[in-house]
Design a protein around this nucleic acid. Structure first.
Lengths: 195, 195
DNA sequence: GTTAGCATGTAAGGAGTTACATGATTTT
DNA sequence: AAAATCATGTAACTCCTTACATGCTAAC
């Protein structure tokens, strides 16, 4: 049925893992086959400089995905596989499946800064239902952070120095802005999917 | 001159380390002796919910600081040291020295989100010179992030989907706000220290 | 021909979390 | 006396970075 080593590799390499990077890589490769170096530049661009990821993370991740059978190495030229030539990766059918699965399962780590950013980058092709769940989860998450900051600020007069207070105020503003933005997005989603 | 084990302990436990948590702990303990559990609550409050730190980080950190001789365990009651009683820690003279040293040396990791937040929390007792260095470093850092986002947004029309673009716009706004705030702080510092 | 940038990869280590285990103290 | 919360601690694990090592390819 299944080759033991592949199954074990799959379980070992991708099940315990939150896999934000893996998700991002699958998402990028779903659009077109790319090589590692280029993938990193795409990540920087598409995640808006929020997150860089070093090559020390990138290449091992590509290897894990390959071992799991989610992507394959499209050896650019036949014949001589030149030791340090670029390796173009292509997503497999299982990779696409897994990508959709990961989006559908989107849980708590899809609403932290990093996970949310990655999920958002592929929103155009995400089902409305999943989009809503992520947006609402993110909103809850940001609202919680906002409340934490508010309560910290409320106790601020006494203990906290004015510099920290101002920084917290900046953070609070940012939270409020994001919540407003999320509210708009969620309203739009409802309008578009509703009637 | 120095006891070998203490010196080794010191080098081993605090030299290779960026030590944001250690800095925060020393800073809090400089104000008053506190026990671990309480320190964590203080961290949440003082860092404005930006950073929580689990006990799995906190207690080992306290142990490292103790081994390095920067803090000491003030066994609350004499006599029976009750297995799981609270341990109140007090900062030592060396601890205070080290705290000032760490602030004075404030380098690149004092201007990332976390490090900056911690340094700011103790700004009231930070020398003007150090304050300026940290504020200007932070400004440079945020300006860089801002430029990264701007250039990502500039290329946005083509590749990036509108959701990500909007998120990047939020991030860009936040950067701009912070830079403006930092500019004000820096101007004030100059006025106060100048004439 | 040598510098700069493209491209891939690995080993070691840093900084933290989670999950667990224990016990003291207060509240219900 | 049970439940909640306070309080301390450890081991295993996760995820990532740094520093290094290698080699290709284009430009000057």
């Amino acid at each position: 049925m299944y080759r033991f080593d592949i199954v074990v590799g799959y379980i070992a390499s991708l099940s315990g893992r939150s896999g934000v990077l893996e998700l991002a890589l699958l998402g990028l490769l779903r659009e077109a086959p790319v090589h590692g170096y280029e993938l990193r530049k795409q990540l920087v661009l598409r995640l808006g400089g929020l997150r860089a990821y070093s090559y020390g993370s990138l290449y091992p991740a590509l290897r894990r995905l390959t071992r799991a059978g989610l992507i394959v190495e499209e050896s650019g030229q036949m014949g001589q596989p030149a030791k340090r030539a670029r390796k173009v990766y292509r997503i497999t059918a299982e990779g696409k499946e897994r990508f959709d699965e990961m989006r559908a399962e989107a849980g708590p780590h899809a609403w932290d800064d990093e996970g949310f950013g990655v999920h958002l980058a592929f929103f155009a092709s995400t089902p409305t239902e999943t989009r809503m769940r992520i947006l609402e989860g993110r909103r809850r998450c940001v609202e919680e952070r906002r409340e934490g900051m508010r309560s910290a600020l409320a106790k601020a007069g006494e203990q906290i120095d004015r510099y920290t207070r101002q920084l917290q105020q900046l953070g609070l503003d940012a939270c409020e802005r994001e919540v407003r933005w999320l509210n708009e997005l969620i309203e739009n989603e409802k309008k578009e999917s509703g009637p």
